[in-house]
Simulated assay, not measured.
Amino acid sequence: MKFSLKEKSLVEIHRICALGWEDSSPDTNGVRVFSNVDEDSISFPSEKYEADSNSSESEGIWSEIRARKIATLLKNRGIDVIWEIGAGHGNMAIPLAEEAIATIPIEPLYSGARALSSKGFHSYAQTLDQLNLPDNCLEAVGIFDVLEHLPNPEIVLNEIYRILKPGGVLLTSVPAYQWLFSDFDLQIGHFRRYSRKSLFKLLNESNFKQVRISNLFFIFIAPALILRRFPYLMGIRRRKKASVPTSENFLIKFLTPILRIFLLVEMRMRIPLGLSIFSEATK
Rank of each mutant, 00 (worst) to 15 (best):
F230I: 09
P223N: 10
F254M: 15
T256H: 14
F262N: 11
K201F: 10
I271N: 00
R239K: 15
R237Y: 07
L203S: 05
L225H: 00
L273G: 00
M269Q: 03
F230H: 03
F217V: 06
K209R: 12
F218W: 01
I226G: 07
F230Y: 06
F220R: 11
N215K: 12
E266S: 09
L275H: 08
N207S: 13
M269Y: 01
R260S: 12
L259H: 03
F208Y: 07
Q210I: 04
L255W: 05
F254E: 12
E248M: 12
P257R: 13
N207T: 12
K241G: 11
P272L: 12
S214Y: 07
Q210G: 06
F262G: 09
I258P: 03
R212W: 14
K201L: 11
M269C: 05
P223C: 09
E205P: 03
L259Q: 02
L263Y: 03
V244E: 11
P223I: 07
K253H: 03
I261S: 01
I271A: 06
V211Q: 11
L255H: 03
I213E: 01
K201P: 01
L216P: 04
S214T: 13
E266D: 08
S247Y: 09
L227R: 13
L202R: 03
I236H: 06
I252F: 02
L275F: 09
I271E: 02
S243L: 10
P272T: 08
V265H: 00
S206G: 09
M267W: 00
P257A: 09
L233S: 06
M234P: 03
